[in-house]
Design a protein around this nucleic acid. Sequence first.
RNA 1: GCCGAAGUGGCGGAACAGGCAGACGCGCACGACUCAAAAUCGUGUUCCUUCGGGAGUGUGGGUUCGAUUCCCACCUUCGGCACCA
Length: 825
Amino acid sequence: MNKKYDFHTIENKWRPYWQAIDLYKTGEDPQKPNYTILDYFPYPSGEGLSVGHCRNYVPSCIAARYKRMTGYNVLHPMGWDAFGLPAENYAIAHHIHPRESTAQFAANYKRQMQLVECSYDWSREINSTDPDYYRWTQWFFLLLFKRGLAYQAMSSQWWCDQCQTILANEQVEHGRCWRCDSPVSKRDLMQWHFKITAYADRLIADLDTVNWPERIKTMQRNWIGRSEGAEVLFTVETSDVPKTSDVYEIITFTTRPDTLFGVTFLALAPEHPLVGEIGTEAQRTATSAALSAGVANYIQSTRRLSEIERQSTERAKTGVFTGLYARHPFTDEPIPIWVADYVLPGYGSGAVMGVPAHDERDFAFAQTYNLRIVNVVNPDETGPDETACFTGYGRLVNSGPYTGMDSAAAITAITADLSAQGKGRPRVTYRLRDWLISRQRYWGAPIPIIHCSTCGPVAAPEADLPVRLPEMADFAPAGDGRSPLARVTDWVNTTCPQCGGAAQRETDTMDGFACSSWYFLRFASPHEAARPFDPEAAARWLPVDTYIGGAEHAVMHLLYARFWTKVMADAGLIDFVEPFSELKNQGMLHSAVDGQKMSKSKGNVVTPDEVIARHGTDALRLYVVFLGPFDADVIWDDVGIRGITRFLDRFWRLAHSGFDAKAQSGKESEEFERERHRVIKRVTADMEGYRFNTAVAALMEYLNYLHDHRDVPADQWQQALESFAILLAPFAPFITEEIWQTVWGHTDSIHRQNWPTYDEALTTAVTARLAVQINGKVRDHITIPTDMAEAEIRQLAVNQAQRYVNGRTPHNIIIVPGRLVNIVV
RNA sequence: GCCGAAGUGGCGGAACAGGCAGACGCGCACGACUCAAAAUCGUGUUCCUUCGGGAGUGUGGGUUCGAUUCCCACCUUCGGCACCA
């Protein structure tokens, strides 16, 4: 008699069994090739996992299982990126130490992942807040420091009032903190930076060597924002008054040296270092005292603007004339110097040569303040258009000796002449800024630097690592812009490793993204005590073959990790320069309630726990991938999972009672065997291409086929069912194991079986059904042997479609082998 | 504004490389089983139709014997960047 399909009992039965046989342990068979499938390093939050997270972890698990069954040693690990602001903010709010709260959250994530039966090798679990881990994060900091890639500088940086810390450029979205979404402002602080800009060109070039979504590569290229151009030097006229320095020089950056003769003003960012000095200079001349006050007022009012307002492109551009003039490097003409808030302090040199005729922003500014507009480039085809600005390339006019040249030639010539005269030089600038890693917060890896009044910043000795995070009862930021660590005086006060004098520890902690910039290496040898990783293990498992995660880290983690990897390669620690050979972005899962991303605050979360309680782990896993293509955004629909539970039920019943001795014809069926080969072929191809949704559809079709074709010999029937079960096993580990072992009596796990193979020759039928078209419209069908000659097919088709041909003469007949015949009349 | 992706039944989606649009699943309708319901099984399900057919993959053109697929223009949605000189 049939046993009812009771997924709870089955799950409880097999979980401990797989644990006992170490099913997911990383393979070490030297005969097999190695393969690493890695998920993004998750940040365990108090909300726990939703079914949305399963869009990431279930496909990677299915892929890992597939790889194991096709003969690979597979490394599929999991760990916790547990330092960071939300954990700390939560801890402060709930009066609990972040160590405890993150341990709880990580444990909950792990419990849920195990509930979903994600096939991670838990013996390799890591945690970035473990001193045995952050010890090596600090070690890498020192590696960068020793290589001149970590430096301290006073800079004006994004400050989040809510989180009470500095943020990197990448971590500010639309003028808001990426973590707490509150508006950010600028603050001047001494900060540690990593010199990622030194790697900008390599970060662009090596994108061509990785198999990543084109979208992500484009985002990275845009973010790095390389532009070639020239620096142009303007000297400042200071009349006859005494100068505080000999000559003032303003360096501007332009990508369009060909427009140099169109410069009608200079614009400095309000933060430009010369603005203050120029103000002082202007003050000395009685006539411009009013002007000077104007500049001061203007800078004041700019400061009051929030960054969102300041950066809005909607807002009219504002500025103020300084009363001073610079000299044009070629014509010596006086050029008025303005301060304008549309000029960004952090890009180029924070100064712009204003060419209103050929730059939209300069044009808008010139119109507002009635500045001259001098056209120096004409479009090639049409004449000049004096009413609007022309930003394209063309032919030069009004440009002295360069008149008549095309833009490209003029760019080369003008840049060369500027260089020759010492008034400029070729220059490449990047939108990318150096990575600011100082955080004025408690819950992070301490920066392992000791400040000595005589030796300056000194690396903490390697033997002293880890520099442990001191215990603190109150780790909330004081709001003074300093890290809470600054209050732990006996931790701060130490001796200089170089001179032995009194010294102080650096009190800032590292950005959490430092931890995730090398974690993939740690998984190769997670228990290594003497080194960050065992180079042999790293060579075996890295770079990561397939990296799976969402697109949200396109310019943060993915850029930082690439940078660190290149630094490590330069230091001779590893022999690859890209950490992730292949990247796959899963689509997001939205709530059916509001179409939004699931989150507790929106109250639209569906948890794997509740779905598993109702429908079982197998159903959840299948449904998550069946909802839609791996990389497409989909909406969770509570009702649709019924299709999956019916499918599993049907398999259960067929495996128990499908075999009906009386119905057996006893004759092997060729067609039946062909269908088996075809489903293996389809599912295998879909697995390779991460088309899990159509793989499930193929399995459903095959099960429907089996259901309707039970009149074959017992052996053939059993072989078909077993093939089906193995193909289904990566998706539905429980039901397949139960049937494999308990119903069919096998004594080893189905998950250790080889992936079934197919014979290409057996996948094609001996007869084909062709569509017969008249002028491209399907009118009839013919069934023919696949080896029928074309002439015969032609004849057959014409005869068959006689009534549609209707006496007309076919003047063309097109045959697409195996598909159709098109008769053109 | 710029860059990128995508628009297919009531719904999620399928269609190798230009070759029978709508696989698979949900939902719905009808039938079988049942006292009844659930479950299951079966049949049907793009729209219009005078039952011959006709129309149909965001819209309008084009290439082709043939277009969801290629080209051009446009509309809509989503994602990224957003004064980067």
